[in-house]
Design a protein around this nucleic acid. Structure first.
Lengths: 224, 224
DNA sequence: CGATGATGTTACTACAAGTAGGTTACCGAT
DNA sequence: ATCGGTAACCTACTTGTAGTAACATCATCG
């Protein structure tokens, strides 16, 4: 209809008339474009929420047309999953890296916790995605994301295994879930309270859960 | 304009031609219709998820036209909030009732936990709503629901207060958040494992968190 | 140069949220 | 008994957004 817009856009690749701010839509390799899309999508999804976000808006902010998003991610949910996967990968990398330098299991847990809370305070956008990831995955691609999430607890489970090998499998799994749940909720709580430092948050978790588990598991180990 | 359709509809209230299955749409008082809508909506939201559910489908299953839903709940999100509010009210009632008969604080916590896990195993639909409630509330009516959710932790906070009055406010709040988070995650975990009984789940929580907090808070109280 | 495939676009369809304005059944008062 | 008046309800529409088909353009390598 309004061909003025289309025409002006068509001028873009060529050097603009001079006074225009050069919204230069350049072609770029797939990988780079993909990262750019994920960056923009994460920002908007985190700000407005999944439902209130439109693909048109993301496309516009990226400086590309909507079918490109579908070319790269298949669907709106696919795009969301992309952002979630990226965010979770970064979180995972941060925590695993922090754990590597630990001297014993308690130290590993504490360092992992601190890294986790540091991540969620410095990457609020990513966290607000991860926090809600389970919500929209009722039927479709839920399993894939659920699997990724599972990896989060696997680290915990591994720690548990090293710490309390004699305790039965199910109790260890439950303990890992409890720890993760506690962390997630406390992280959300911290969002409204900037005065709580990551170290402090980690300490809350340690005091509330770890020392209790320690006593309990040690007791179990002796009883068994 | 197309009065043919209107005419055929007009036949509905009157007894149908005979072989039809009597889609008799009866009028009913507001309160009753509202409850009916919430029941259907909860079922469909829980089954398909918020995004994949259409208002048309809910309206059809209720046996009413779409504008009715908007008359009663204002928007799709309003309808969701209605179902969440109802589910949370029921959960709250269950747990508070269970706590009343307790003889001390530890007993109160244990009874509350058992009631919680019993609720989420017997009301899976309600739980799958509550579990994800935070996801869609990025900007709009989030505060209202968040407030309701806050009440969930208030009971915990109150218990903490009674149990460890000398511990500073913030630690107590954090402890309450941790407990709630642990419960939520463990509840989701239990969904895939029918062999875990509510009593068992409650025991997991008690062992992981409570005894630890007990020792820790008692220690703090002595230090302070 | 010119073919080929990757990157990108316009212009559409289908469907769902939300609304304007009119209709019908119930209920209480005359 | 019947006749307003109102609460419950409907049809038919607009608007907006996910998703798609078919076409266009840039880059690169023979």
């Amino acid at each position: 209809m309004v061909d003025l817009i289309a025409d002006s856009r068509r001028l873009n690749p060529v050097t603009a008339t001079g006074n225009e701010q050069a919204p230069v839509r350049k072609r770029m390799p797939r990988a780079e474009r993909e990262r750019q899309m994920l960056t923009v999508a994460e920002e908007i999804f985190a700000a407005r929420g999944f439902v209130a976000t439109s693909m048109d808006e993301i496309a516009e902010r990226v400086g590309v047309s909507k079918p490109m998003l579908y070319e790269y991610f298949g669907s709106k949910e696919g795009l969301l999953i992309g952002t979630i996967r990226q965010a979770r990968a970064e979180l995972r990398r941060s925590t695993e890296e922090a754990v590597l330098g630990a001297i014993d299991i308690e130290d590993a847990l504490r360092k992992g916790l601190v890294a986790f809370f540091e991540f969620i305070t410095s990457h609020r956008q990513s966290w607000s995605l991860l926090r809600n990831e389970g919500a929209l995955m009722a039927n479709s691609a839920g399993s894939e994301v659920e699997q990724t999430r599972q990896q989060q607890t696997n680290l915990m489970t591994a720690l548990m295994q090293g710490f309390a090998p004699t305790v039965d499998e199910k109790s260890r799994e439950a303990a890992a879930e409890i720890l993760v749940g506690a962390c997630e909720r406390l992280a959300t709580w911290c969002e409204h309270r900037d005065e709580v430092t990551p170290v402090q948050a980690a300490e809350y978790i340690m005091r509330a859960c770890w020392y209790g588990m320690l006593a309990e598991f040690r007791g179990d180990a002796q009883n068994a």
